[in-house]
Computed example of a mutant assay.
Amino acid sequence: MKTHQQPKLKTQLFSCGFFRHCAQTVLSPTGTTPPLPQTPPGFQCESSTSSSSSSTTSQSFTQWRFSPPTPTTTTNSNLIQTNTNPPSPPPPPQIHNLQELFHILELQLTTDPTSVLNLLERSLVPNPPQNQPPCPPNLMRALTANLATAKPATKILFALCLSDANRRVAVETGAVSAVVEAAPDLDGAPAERALAALELMCTLPEGAEELRAHALAVPVMVTMMAKTAARGKEYAIGVLAVVYGSVGGGEEHHTAPPEEVARAVELALQGECSARGRRKGAQLLKTLQQLSQAELEAAESHLHEAN
Rank of each mutant, 00 (worst) to 15 (best):
H4W: 07
K10W: 08
T11V: 15
Q12K: 12
L13G: 04
C22I: 14
A23S: 13
Q24H: 13
Q24P: 00
T30M: 08
T33F: 09
T33D: 07
P35T: 10
P37F: 11
P37L: 14
P40E: 00
P40S: 08
G42L: 15
G42Y: 01
F43P: 00
S50E: 04
S54H: 06
S58R: 13
S58N: 03
S60K: 08
S60E: 01
W64K: 06
R65K: 15
T74D: 00
T75P: 05
T75H: 08
S77Q: 09
L79V: 11
I80W: 02
Q81L: 15
T82E: 02
N83Y: 02
N85K: 14
N85A: 14
Q94L: 15
I95Q: 14
H96S: 15
Q99W: 00
E100Y: 04
L101N: 05
F102A: 08
F102K: 09
H103F: 10
Q108V: 14
P113I: 13
N118P: 00
S123K: 10
L124N: 04
P126M: 09
P126N: 06
N127W: 02
N127F: 11
P128N: 07
P129I: 13
Q132L: 12
Q132I: 13
P133W: 07
P134F: 09
P134E: 05
C135E: 01
P136N: 04
L139P: 05
L143Q: 08
T144Y: 00
A145E: 04
T149P: 02
K151W: 05
A153M: 09
I156T: 12
L157N: 03
L157S: 05
F158V: 11
A159W: 02
A159L: 05
S163Y: 02
A165L: 14
R167L: 12
R168K: 15
V169T: 11
V169W: 03
V171I: 14
E172M: 12
V176Q: 03
A178Y: 02
E181N: 11
A183L: 14
L186G: 02
A191N: 05
L198Q: 02
E199A: 10
M201S: 08
C202F: 03
E206A: 14
A208M: 04
L211Y: 01
R212Q: 06
R212N: 03
A215H: 07
M224T: 09
A229T: 13
V239Q: 01
V239G: 04
V242N: 01
G245H: 03
S246R: 13
S246P: 00
G248L: 05
E251W: 04
H253A: 10
H254P: 01
T255R: 04
P257K: 09
P258N: 00
R263D: 07
R263A: 14
A264P: 03
V265E: 01
L269T: 08
Q270R: 14
E272N: 10
R276A: 09
G281K: 01
L285E: 00
T287S: 10
L288V: 12
Q289R: 12
L291A: 11
S292V: 02
E295W: 00
E295A: 08
A298D: 06
A298G: 08
A299P: 01
E305L: 10
A306I: 12
N307M: 14
N307T: 15
